[in-house]
């Protein structure tokens, strides 16, 4: 495809970067990104990837916009209260950049549907708010060898890492299994600084663009920890675990696990 005049202008600040250029912008335009969660993280990730001109963005969320979301979930507004979050964000993103095909996926990710949902995408972004889905996404991406950019937030702290299955550790190499239900707080109970997902989401979007462009060094084998109160970024190493239950030498997880029931039973 050739960019028209308007597109050349829109993406001109990318195109003049030698690391991007017309070629890179075309790569961005031809890429497909799956964003799990249209909340605190999914909103800024989707917003920036839309602005960047990612051609196809699937946005998955099954929840409706609530007033308490608007403190941080910047793609929604008072006009979309009560509307499905994927639909709400689609409106915002399309207003920003009509070139982008935003596909709302109004489902919950399960061990039954995830492989089918993500299989056609180049990169998966984890912006979900719970452990069952976080482990499910990791396991599915390992099985499909799909690059995964993972982000998580709580209170004033955020974590980001890029998982390249087959070429580095996965989320289970870092945290082998999810905490038992009830041992870790949620944003609802613990709170979250509204700007925090903006910082973490922008880092995730940057990682996605680097992967698409094949430029720079992905945040692989490392966990970036952001402490907003101290304005501190720390990186810790994630060694690949040869005994990892999903990406190790003798994986014990051969089918996707549904942790949801275990969690909901509590």
């Amino acid at each position: 495809m050739e960019f028209n005049e308007e597109q050349l202008q829109r993406y001109s600040r990318h195109i003049i970067l030698p690391e991007v250029g017309g070629k890179g912008q075309k790569k961005i335009f031809e890429s497909k990104v799956f964003i799990a969660g249209a909340g605190g993280l999914g909103c800024p990730v989707g917003y920036y990837l839309t602005a960047a001109g990612v051609g196809t963005i699937a946005l998955m969320d099954n929840d409706a916009v609530e007033l308490s979301n608007l403190q941080r979930q910047i793609a929604h507004s008072v006009k979309t209260l009560g509307i499905n979050k994927a639909d709400s964000a689609k409106k915002t993103f399309e207003a920003l950049n009509p070139d982008v095909n935003v596909i709302p996926v109004k489902e919950r990710l399960t061990n039954k549907n995830i492989l089918e949902l993500i299989k056609d995408y180049d990169v998966v972004v984890d912006g979900t708010d719970n452990f069952p889905t976080r482990y499910l996404i990791n396991d599915a991406c390992v099985m499909l060898k799909k690059p995964l950019v993972s982000g998580a937030i709580l209170r004033f702290e955020g974590q980001v890492t890029t998982i390249l299955p087959g070429d580095g550790p996965c989320y289970r190499c870092l945290f082998e299994s999810p905490p038992p239900p009830g041992l870790v707080p949620s944003c609802q109970e613990a709170g979250v600084l509204g700007v925090l997902p903006g910082v973490i989401g922008a880092l995730q979007a940057t990682e996605v663009l680097k992967l698409i462009l094949g430029k720079g060094k992905p945040l692989k084998g490392e966990l970036l920890i952001y402490d907003a109160l101290r304005t501190n970024f720390r990186k810790v190493k994630i060694p690949k675990n040869p005994d990892c239950p999903i990406c190790g030498e003798n994986p014990t997880i051969k089918e996707l696990i549904d942790y949801t029931q275990e969690y909901c039973a509590i």
């Binding site: 909340g39 708010d129 719970n130 452990f131 709580l154 870092l174 870790v184 949620s186 109970e189 966990l223």
Partner: peptide, 17 residues
């Protein structure tokens, strides 16, 4: 020494942390 737990913001109920 840094202690780094897994985190996931959101809606899960019941928590001790």
């Amino acid at each position: 020494v840094s202690i780094v737990p897994a985190i996931a913001g959101g809606k899960a109920v019941n928590s001790k942390w």
